[in-house]
Design a protein around this nucleic acid. Structure first.
Lengths: 348, 348
DNA sequence: TATTAGCACTCAAATCTTATGAGTGCTAAC
DNA sequence: GTTAGCACTCATAAGATTTGAGTGCTAATA
């Protein structure tokens, strides 16, 4: 059954009012909106219909109505008009920084500051290639490997070695490593490549093993999905989650990057257009303890087609309009940085 | 008024029982300890005395007694026998790592895992000296500065520059920087030193300014008091803090390094012997919202006399014995690492 | 036929009432 | 100095009562 215009209007009013007050919305409240000019009895009839259709529900017999997940979904998809472009402050939120890592951390922070929800940001799934490796002697038996990856992701790795090395050796290794690894994608740095390097190097193979070991560790670390979060403690402010133990579980979940990456992974595989907003309401999250939460994510895009996600986790009863417009703005800014201003080095 | 032996015994039993159960302890409970052989009436008389002396208090008229801060203090100072060395599992908790930063993060984690409290660890206040600086060309107009500091604290800094540099230039700068800065204490890297370098360098002064700018930023960052925390969400499990908003404030405070550094600073200036345990109970913390918390810290020591702190923040009603012994163990292990095993490079 | 006024009904939340029982302080006896 | 006995206190839990917001239904109305 299609909703007629009046039902839509009423549903919209109910949800908007509920988002504002957090209290179940009664028929009289709605009938007071003077552009409606309907008595509470009529509203009641309409509400009964809306309830039968699954858009709203009564927490208990003599209470007003609150939206169901289906109701929220309809609101987000059809009823919520986004803020006019004019209204949206397009003030630049991001400072320019040179390192992808710092930039994304900043995004998470700014987003948390602007929405007062818990936020998470994933690094783009771009093909990470090595810009260069710098091996330096820390002391007689210790090396430092610095690996710089596209986007200026920097990894440091201390490598203890058995043999005493002089500067000549270190220089040689540097050249060897860079010859092979410069421009290589992190995924390509595997046993085969290492064996090739070993062959070429000849006598130094024992030390090289130790160095490779270190490099591989660093590469492995760099290759992990990076997720940055901010404002986790905002979760404590969602009253609807209720129980402190549930809240605490949720908070712990949010601090566990492993868990988060699952959460995000499920989301991807969608349309993946930059600026796309995805909203996951309540049960749609399919993660324990998140039935009372909504997640709103936006996809940002890098020039080569790599995409990343920025998003917030909040209570179902959240200001979707504001969140969506904030996310859109930030995505645009991020796209800008990646595509025009080149604040962060990309593959070019 | 001195406490006689019987009063001490009773106080100890009261506190020990309370630590276990969390319920106010009544006279009958105590009188049941058969090594005491006293009726509840007698215990009541003694309890009345102990209350008058300020060691225990009734939450309300018809309740049992719970310890006051003064009671806890007396318990910790005089009554609590620490676990026998034999009982304490001396299992090695720490993995050996080469970087101070990783080591301390690990300490915080291990401590949280073992105590189930929120933990914090400060880096030692050692004189940080530069081991070496490595400047590398990221691309035509970007440099990467890697600063390695004693203890293998590593800082990376991207430095954008206006001029296009060739490898020769970078090499020159490297030599220049290291000549001046190797072995220098971070505090010494100031305008004077930089002016001296500028004079020596001659023509490159414009670029040098940009490089110095970057180096100074990195040095500044490295010089900040590092505090590592872990297990913050354990705070949510302290039931005595009660109110979720208070808990949440406390949690936020705990995540604010600024705030934490104040908390720690107040503690220092004490005896500063390695292995020293300091216990701060309730009001002794003199930080808002921490009246219901206790903080237990231990000092660890580096060979040159630098000291750092490891500690936990928990509810007043905590297993002090266990916490103290865990802290002692970790401190010993840490001292070991710094002084014998040299897991982390020190000044040598 | 759609809308509305009227009214009985429901039920969460707040407030009050009333046990219950753990624990105390005091007193008099041992 | 210690203890038995007893009256007293008060937090907690469980019921009882009130209040009010809100509903569904029905009959009257436009």
């Amino acid at each position: 059954m299609e909703l007629d215009e009046r039902k839509k209007t009423i549903l919209k009013l109910i949800i908007a009012t509920y988002l504002e007050t957090g209290e179940p919305v009664g028929s009289r409240t709605i009938s007071k909106f003077n552009d409606l000019n309907l008595s509470s009895a009529t509203i009641r009839n309409e509400m009964a219909d809306l309830e039968e259709l699954g858009y709203i529900v009564q927490p208990h017999t003599s209470a007003g109505r609150i939206p169901t997940d289906k109701g929220y979904r309809f609101y987000v998809d059809n009823l919520m008009e986004e803020k006019e472009d004019a209204e949206v402050e397009k003030s630049t939120l991001l400072e320019r920084v040179d390192r992808m890592e710092l930039l994304l951390k900043q995004v998470a922070k700014v987003l948390a500051y602007n929405t007062n929800y818990a936020t998470l940001v994933t690094a783009p799934n771009y093909r990470k290639t090595v810009k260069f490796i710098q091996l330096s002697k820390v002391d007689e038996q210790t090396l430092l490997a610095v690996i710089v990856i596209e986007g200026n992701l920097i990894k440091n790795q201390i490598i203890p070695i058995d043999t005493i090395l002089d500067n000549e050796d270190v220089l040689k290794f540097n050249i060897l490593l860079n010859t092979f690894l410069q421009g290589a994608s992190l995924e390509d740095i595997n046993l085969e490549m290492i064996n090739a390097m070993k062959k070429q190097s000849g006598e130094y193979s024992v030390i090289l093993d130790q160095i490779f070991q270190g490099i591989i560790e660093a590469v492995h670390e760099a290759n992990e999905l990076e997720i940055y979060t901010s404002g986790a403690t905002n979760i404590l402010k969602y009253p609807e989650i209720g129980d402190i133990s549930r809240t605490s579980e949720l908070l712990e979940k949010f601090e566990d990057k492993e868990e988060l990456s699952h959460l995000i992974e499920k989301k991807t595989g969608n349309k993946e257009e930059s600026g796309d907003i995805q909203v996951y309401i309540g049960e749609e999250n399919a993660v324990q303890n998140m039935e009372d939460c909504s997640m709103v994510t936006a996809t940002y895009k890098m020039p080569e087609g790599a995409t990343g996600t920025i998003g917030i986790l909040g209570p179902k009863r959240m200001d979707y309009k504001k969140v969506v417009s904030t996310l859109k703005n930030l995505t645009i800014e991020l796209d800008d940085i990646f595509n025009k201003r080149k604040g962060v080095n990309d593959d070019g």
